[in-house]
Design a protein around this nucleic acid. Structure first.
Length: 563
RNA sequence: CGGAGUAUGGCGCAGCCCGGUUAGCGCGUCUGGUUUGGGACCAGAAGGCCGCAGGUUCGAAUCCUGCUACUCCGACCA
């Protein structure tokens, strides 16, 4: 591609609003432009990068037997009603206003299950891996950080269809390995965490994560290799030990202590033994959850424990009605209404606890959960924090922010049951197809790569994702005929050898070309100037380390082929 | 959805508090000339209903009200 005829609108600077390095560089290098919150145009150079990513995705998916589809973004809502996801998706799904019954698909489990129902009827028809790389639409409440969270974005989504959960394990493992190959080939540093399945449903799920301050996920990782999304992360902290002395529970006045912090300060107590009592409305039913005073409730764990997302904190009036006290004085003893009380594992069989008395301005001390309270179940409800020992070998956990690049799910039969996607098994019995679903954010690969591979001058592409293999920088091509002749010759030679080449033949000063070349960041630049050309040499600049190599003009093609 | 901020030629910004000539600056663009190995220089030129709608005022980019868009923070902790 000759740069004088190619649209690469590079910029010297971008608005101060743009925070993320990758976002800045995508704009500056002329890869992409935003036309609204979470909506982007890919410009020719950026589109080449997206195409490179797609190629890696296609090759690795094809290797595990994937078959590429292209499913419509416009979906009849009826299929979404069948699986109950119109409600589950809520505002996230776009609804078409001037044509009843159409939505924009945020994902494609329903349509896959539909086609499976239409045409998969025997165990002989499986396994299948169906995938696509296609635009997804999600009405994100707050798009952010450039292409990281958009309202329209590309997703590589694939779906496995199997005859049994054992075979689902095989398809899942194939995807797991394919995803590793994909991110390895892209040259991205990532880690894999166990995750919550959330609204998708199903059993096991894992996420492929890139550590970044701009990430929206929080993960617990340690040197031993422990890695889990904070939603499901656990640590090896032990429950508080029982005191030998076991005094009678005793009520005491705490008029000024509204929070655990107040209580600790006002009465010089250990924060650990001040149990906090949280009232939640789960599936319209009130429950109390007891936590150590210094612990944070993990709402994802609550969701998966109760197997529902219909969870909210109780309102003040509800709290008063249920407990007989205002928030700040709640506890497991003397509740007004008979509700189930759950407690975090770290409080298991504890005594000597301090907690509210369900009488505004009063607390109990010396509470023995075994003796004084009725705990429906002890469960892990807490959020892991940095510094805690992990469950592998006690290595210290760090809690880091991360960007979710990919997510793989064992869905099971949730969607096939709902849509009636069944098959006849070897035993002649009708069974539901067992599904898995697997997604990768295409733009996020580009963004994460740039986050990890750039310097002050611009992007540093690797071979796999680079929009072009080489960039010929012709010095004074418009003044020096020998330079432009040689560049032209090199350019057509590369083209005939299928080496993807960008040739800067513009009539601009050398400095300008150097700056743009570094910003665009192809792995190799070939700098052609009259001085070196007189000695039959050209200069090769390796972008990643700025190494400069002088090469004989007749050897340059071999050099590029071998690098 | 809660909070904060921003909106001024193509891009990046100043001006606004404290209303008052013709709304500035840098980059980019166009013309001519000089330049050419790390974003050249000189001269000239084009390009703005100062986000939208109301209001206050003799007079509004500037003050007030409403709306819209965008950006950032937050959406367990009783």
């Amino acid at each position: 591609m000759k740069q004088s005829q190619y649209f690469i609108p590079t910029l010297k600077d971008v608005s101060n609003d743009v925070q993320m390095t990758s976002h800045k560089l995508m704009l500056r290098a002329g890869l992409m432009r935003s036309i609204g919150a979470g909506i982007f145009s890919w410009l020719p150079l950026g589109w080449r990068v997206i195409e490179k990513i797609k190629k890696v995705l296609q090759e690795e998916m094809n290797k595990i037997g994937g078959q590429e589809f292209h499913l419509p973004a416009l979906n009849p809502i009826e299929y979404w009603e069948e699986t109950g996801r119109v409600e589950a998706m809520g505002d996230v799904m776009f609804h078409i206003k001037n044509r009843d019954g159409l939505v924009l698909a945020p994902t494609h489990e329903e349509i896959i299950a539909l086609h499976a129902k239409q045409h998969i009827s025997s165990y002989r028809d499986m396994p299948m891996v169906w995938y696509q790389i296609q635009s997804k639409f999600r009405n994100e409440p707050r798009p952010r950080s450039g292409v990281l969270r958009g309202r329209q974005f590309f997703m590589k989504d694939s779906y496995s269809l199997d005859t049994s959960f054992e075979n689902l394990d095989i398809s899942y493992d194939k995807h797991y390995n394919a995803y590793k190959s994909i991110f390895d080939r892209c040259g991205i540093k990532y880690f894999i965490v166990g995750a919550s399945s959330g609204a998708m449903g199903g059993s096991k799920s894992q996420e492929f994560m890139v550590e970044s301050d701009f990430g929206e996920d929080v993960c617990a990782i340690s040197d031993s290799g422990y890695a889990a999304n904070i939603e499901v992360a656990t640590s090896d902290l032990k429950a508080i030990e029982r005191n030998k002395d076991n005094f009678e529970a005793e009520i005491f006045e705490t008029p000024k202590s509204k929070t655990i912090d107040d209580l600790v300060k006002d009465f010089d107590l250990d924060e650990q033994i001040c149990a906090k009592s949280l009232i939640y409305i789960v599936d319209k039913k009130a429950v109390m959850i007891l936590m150590r005073g210094n612990d944070e409730l993990n709402i994802s764990k609550v969701e998966s424990f109760f197997a529902t997302t219909d969870i909210r904190p109780a309102h003040d009036e509800e709290i008063l009605e249920i407990t007989g006290a205002k928030a700040g004085s709640l506890g497991p003893i003397n509740l007004l209404k008979n509700i189930d009380v759950y407690a975090d594992n770290l409080l298991m069989n504890c005594n000597g606890l301090v907690s509210g008395a369900n009488k505004t301005g009063y607390h109990y001390k010396n509470i023995d959960l075994d003796r004084d309270a009725k705990i429906a179940k002890y469960q892990d409800f807490r959020t892991v924090q940095s510094g805690e020992p992990d469950i592998i070998d006690g290595s210290t956990i760090s809690v880091v922010k991360a960007i979710e690049l990919g997510h793989i799910f064992k869905l099971g039969t949730k969607y096939s049951d709902a849509m009636g996607a069944k098959f006849l098994d070897t035993d002649g019995k009708e069974k539901s197809i067992v599904m898995g679903s697997y997604g990768i954010g295409v733009e996020r690969i580009a963004a994460c790569f740039i986050e990890q591979s750039s310097d002050d001058n611009g992007i540093i592409w690797n071979k796999e994702l680079a929009p072009f293999d080489v960039h010929i920088v012709g010095i004074n091509t418009h003044k020096d005929q020998t330079v432009s002749d040689y560049c032209d010759e090199l350019y057509s030679k590369f083209n005939s050898e299928n080496i993807e080449v960008l040739y800067d033949d513009r009539d601009v000063s050398p400095g300008f070309k150097f700056k743009d070349a570094d910003l665009i960041g192809t792995p190799i630049q070939i700098i052609v100037g009259s001085r070196s050309l007189k000695e039959d040499l050209v200069e090769v600049k390796i972008r990643k380390n700025s190494e400069k190599i002088m090469i004989k003009t007749n050897k340059i093609l071999d050099f590029i082929k071998n690098n």
